[in-house]
Design a protein around this nucleic acid. Structure first.
Length: 286
DNA sequence: ACGCAGGCACTAC
DNA sequence: GTAGTGCCTGCG
């Protein structure tokens, strides 16, 4: 295939639902742009638009296409993953509703920071905070298709050196300001090496992440799932907890504790429990 | 009987 | 959601 022919073509994206993937509470900075979405992957401005099983990417160079493919996990074998899901009514319904929803591969720090700011917040507010942080501390990049300025997520060093807990409060973080600032400082100092953790087993990564201020079990599992590609990780928030109790432990006298639920989901949902969780989560919220 | 581990509720952030 | 506080319970 000639270079020109390839550049003119959209990315094949069978069994993919872009709007649903972007609306499922994984990432919070993409903005609607015509019939597509505009955002930043790492520090690369990108516009994506889905038409059937095709994904139109702008700019459409080889590197960007590769980044988009990786970011949206177009290589995940969804049918194979679905085959590992337990066969029960709740899971069947969620799967029917969410087909094509993919687990995005997020940059490490961006994921850590975003989820620290997400504690007890609505999607709308998380999104607003993300944009404010980007505008004030992130690197500006120009979108080649429109000339508009977009912003990369601020690096931990940028927050540690240019911001302060007080300054972050001004971004609408509330009590999360101290947590995010503390985490940025810890990562900037190398007290927690996010990159190096990629080679460690799940439990080691989990414990290391929990050392960061503002990161507890739920957020650590989100980071494991959305940034480290540990698909057995199963974040349990109030929505999922409700789903689990309702569908798997109906009218049970004494409620199960979080650790008990965590043990249950680990063995019941298996190696792609995180995928199952995301489907149950998104379905429950819609 | 006394005391420390850890399970659990409560609350400020 | 996280994290620090304080009380209750159980085993030794």
């Amino acid at each position: 295939m000639s270079r020109n022919a390839q550049r003119a073509e959209p990315l094949p994206a069978p069994l993919f639902n872009l709007p649903m993937t972007l609306a499922s509470g994984q990432v919070f900075h993409w903005l609607p742009d015509g019939n597509g979405f505009a955002g930043v992957i790492g520090d690369r401005p990108v516009r994506v638009e889905q038409q059937g099983e095709c994904l139109w990417v702008t700019p459409n160079d080889a590197t960007t296409r590769e980044e988009v493919c990786r970011y949206f996990a177009l290589d995940h074998p969804l049918e194979t993953i679905y085959a590992t899901f337990p066969d029960d009514p709740a899971m069947r319904e969620a799967l029917a509703f969410c087909r094509g929803l993919r687990l995005i591969r997020q940059p490490l720090w961006e994921c850590v920071a975003t989820f620290i700011t997400s504690a007890m917040k609505q999607v709308k507010h998380i999104s607003q905070i993300s944009h404010t942080l980007r505008q004030r501390y992130g690197r500006p990049v120009t979108a080649p298709w429109s000339g508009q300025t977009l912003y990369a997520y601020p690096a931990p060093e940028a927050l540690a050196e240019q911001a302060s807990e007080a300054a972050l409060r001004e971004c609408g973080l509330g009590f999360r300001a101290g947590k995010l600032y503390g985490a940025a400082v810890a990562v900037a100092r190398g007290e927690v090496d996010l990159q190096a953790l990629e080679h460690e087993p799940d439990d080691v990564v989990f414990k290391a992440l929990c050392r960061l201020p503002g990161v507890g079990p739920k957020i650590a599992h989100c980071i494991l799932l959305f940034a480290y590609g540990r698909y057995a990780a199963f974040p349990i928030d109030v929505w999922i907890e409700r789903v689990l109790r309702h569908h798997y432990f109906p009218r049970r006298r004494k409620a199960l504790t979080l650790p008990q639920l965590q043990r249950f989901v680990a063995q019941y949902f298996g190696p792609y429990g995180g995928y199952a969780q995301q489907y149950l989560f998104h379905h429950a919220r819609n």
